[in-house]
Amino acid sequence: MDDPNTDVIQGTLDMLILKTLSLEPMHGFGIARRVEQISRGVFKVNPGSLLTALQRLERAGWLDAEWSNTANSRRAKFYSLTRAGKKQLEIETRDWTRRASAIARLLKAEA
């Protein structure tokens, strides 16, 4: 068994959630699937970590949460981005870009 690593890179889950929610309000499962789809299966999100992160982000004031019905009329907790959340996403994106490009440069130099 030599499965490729599908763990979300440490410390980036928050950013991925914020980015996903910046398009539209979504429930937990929706977020998980969206991350998987867009990353083309590179990242798989573990529900325990995801729901914990959602609770934490809501407490931090970056997300709002509301119970409403899904398309197939199941009750679900929908999360949406607050204004503070948008700002946080910008900060994290900028930070990530900076670090990722640094790593990319380093790797290129090695090669």
Binding site: H27, G28, F29, R33, P47, R75, A76
Partner: peptide, 17 residues
């Protein structure tokens, strides 16, 4: 209960898919 509901719904979705 809130957490249980949310987790429940998540698994329902997985199952349905």
């Amino acid at each position: 209960r809130d957490v249980a509901d949310e987790v429940n719904q998540y698994f329902e979705e997985v199952k349905a898919e």
